[in-house]
Design a binder for these strands. Structure first.
Length: 299
DNA sequence: CGAATTTGACCATC
DNA sequence: GATGGTCAAATTCG
């Protein structure tokens, strides 16, 4: 069992205990404040667990990234590398409150381009790792300010940081912690969506920022690496999702032609503890989390 | 003065 | 032809 596995188990166990306490809280007390704190903590824990898994999955992509590396090393062509990128894992962070801008994610990025994107008010910035040439690090990210909320940056991460990965696993773990602490800050201090994992797929879908916006006051964005969804393996394919979240909380956004060859699924979870119909349905899914237990997680 | 950013051009894909 | 990703010269910044 890897360090990441242990971290995830630890986080999920904490989440389970907190969910139990929340259920008990709701049955026996009327304290909305303590319930709110518990829900915040549960969301933080699941966010962390997902983030750890997301980083762990990066290792599996090293091979495909190496292929791109070989082609890229020629440095002779301005060709787009669409075909390779369709097979790359892509993360999308919808980060809020990043006054320092999209570079504030623990890595050094260098901007190499900017484009006006059709249908978007704001241009997309293209960044690559500062160590691209010194350490042959092929990590790239694209940053675009949300049309609907200028305080939100939509950030797509493509590729891994070889400048981190070629060091010890200890270093990698440290980096992961740094990253989800960043996410937490966005989540818990700004009360805005924190991150979305944009996984690979063959058909195209695009994050609807309008949809995100319309829900961000009710839901906190949750994210999952979809290779687990896609291959039906791991924790049971699509099943885990419907077990954790009720139908109305799991939403596949409508597809459009973004040209990026990327599909996104977003599962959302409540951000506030307004006692409402939505909250009721969410509490029933908390019940599911408690009932499922560890066998479901690791069988 | 070296590093980083800007910006127009180039090119592949659809 | 429209679009988006990348390059690289020019410019700005520290």
């Amino acid at each position: 069992m890897t360090m990441e596995d242990k971290l995830v188990i630890n986080e999920l166990e904490q989440g389970r205990e907190l969910a139990k306490r929340l259920m008990s809280n709701l049955k026996h007390t009327s304290s909305t404040e303590s319930s709110k704190a518990l829900i915040d903590e549960i969301l933080r824990i699941y966010h962390n667990a997902i983030f750890i898994l997301s980083f762990k999955d990066d290792d599996k992509n090293k091979q495909s990234l190496q292929i791109i590396d070989d082609k890229d090393s020629k440095h002779v062509s301005k060709k787009r590398k669409i075909s390779e990128k369709k097979n790359e894992k892509v993360r999308v962070f919808v980060g809020a409150g990043q006054e320092k801008g999209p570079n504030d994610d623990g890595h050094c990025w260098r901007k190499y381009g900017q484009k006006e994107i059709h249908g978007s008010k704001n241009p997309r910035g293209y960044y690559r790792c500062t160590h691209r040439f010194t350490k042959n690090c092929l990590a790239v990210k694209q940053v675009q300010k949300s049309d609907t909320d200028p305080s939100i940056f939509e950030v797509k991460y493509l590729g891994n940081h070889s400048c981190n990965n070629n060091t010890s696993s200890t270093n990698k773990t440290n980096f992961s912690v740094t990253m989800f602490e960043e996410g937490n800050r966005a989540l818990y201090e700004t009360e805005k969506p924190a991150d979305v994992v944009k996984p690979e797929k063959t058909e195209e879908t695009r994050v609807s920022l309008e949809d995100l916006e319309s829900k961000k006051n009710i839901f906190r964005t949750f994210s999952f690496a979809n290779h687990e969804i896609e291959n039906g393996g791991g924790v049971g394919g699509d099943g885990w999702r419907s077990n954790i979240f009720p139908e109305n909380l799991v939403e596949k956004l409508s597809p459009s032609t973004s040209g990026s060859g990327i599909t996104t699924e977003i599962a959302t979870a409540p951000a506030s503890v307004e006692i409402s119909e939505t909250a009721d349905s969410y509490f029933s899914c908390l019940d599911n989390i408690i009932d499922f237990g560890q066998d479901w997680l690791w069988s």
